[in-house]
Amino acid sequence: MKNLRPLFFGIIIGALATYFFCPRQAAEEESVAAKAEVVKPKGVITVAQAKELNYNWTKFRKPAIDSITQRMVGKDDYRSAWWSLQDVEDYIAYIKQETQNDGEIFTGLRVYFGVYGEHISSSNKDLSTMFIVPTGAKKVEKASMININLQGGNRDLTKPPLNDGIGGGGYPQ
């Protein structure tokens, strides 16, 4: 019986050490993750700046574009495109998966202007659209002291772009 006392004493000390040290580490990691703040991305502008940009576009571009569209289609052209948050999040997740499978790095998004042509429904025929193209680079896995990538990290990737945004008017004044 005397030989079992150190064993029981060791088990109790081990259990107490596990109880006090392990849960605290996990709780601290969760606390740090919960406290992580969202950082405002660079390039965020004020609403007033957005209204000024839209006003300038309306003043300098809209008359020329709408005059052409009125002659061709008989109505004003689209000035914006809208995608739901869910569509954008799903698209980003899809592109992340596709680039990972193909050995590419997904670094950003580029928005292009386009015009619907002859092979589209009559309501959108010859009107403007915008579509989103993923950008990135090929992964380089070769060991090297100097990593030179001549194409940069923002070339258009050959992944399916996102279109079918809802066309609309200008920024609300």
Rank of each mutant, 00 (worst) to 15 (best):
I13G: 08
I13P: 00
G14F: 11
A15R: 09
A17N: 10
T18V: 14
F20L: 13
F21V: 11
F21S: 09
C22D: 13
P23Q: 05
R24F: 11
R24I: 08
A26S: 14
A27C: 03
A27F: 10
E28K: 15
E28A: 15
E29V: 10
S31D: 13
S31T: 15
V32A: 14
A33T: 05
K35I: 07
A36R: 15
V38S: 15
K40F: 10
K40E: 14
K40C: 10
P41C: 08
K42Y: 09
G43E: 11
V44P: 01
I45C: 11
I45V: 15
I45N: 06
T46W: 00
A48W: 02
Q49F: 05
A50V: 03
K51T: 03
K51E: 06
E52V: 09
E52Q: 15
L53C: 07
Y55Q: 11
Y55A: 15
W57D: 04
W57S: 06
W57F: 13
W57G: 05
W57I: 02
T58R: 15
K59N: 05
F60N: 12
F60K: 09
R61L: 11
K62P: 01
P63A: 06
P63L: 12
I65S: 09
D66G: 04
D66W: 03
T69M: 04
T69D: 02
T69K: 02
Q70L: 15
R71K: 14
M72W: 08
M72H: 10
V73Q: 13
G74F: 10
K75A: 06
K75Q: 10
D76F: 02
Y78A: 08
Y78K: 01
A81H: 04
W82K: 15
W83L: 03
W83K: 00
S84D: 13
L85N: 12
Q86K: 14
D87I: 02
V88N: 08
V88W: 12
V88C: 09
V88D: 05
E89C: 03
E89N: 14
D90E: 07
A93G: 00
Y94E: 06
I95N: 06
K96M: 03
K96E: 08
Q97D: 10
Q97N: 10
E98M: 09
T99P: 04
N101V: 02
D102W: 01
G103K: 01
E104V: 01
E104F: 04
F106L: 03
F106V: 06
T107L: 03
T107D: 01
G108F: 05
G108W: 02
L109H: 04
L109N: 06
R110A: 05
R110G: 01
V111R: 00
V111K: 00
V111Q: 00
Y112K: 07
Y112D: 07
V115L: 07
Y116I: 08
Y116H: 12
H119D: 14
S121Q: 14
S122L: 10
S123R: 07
K125Q: 12
D126M: 14
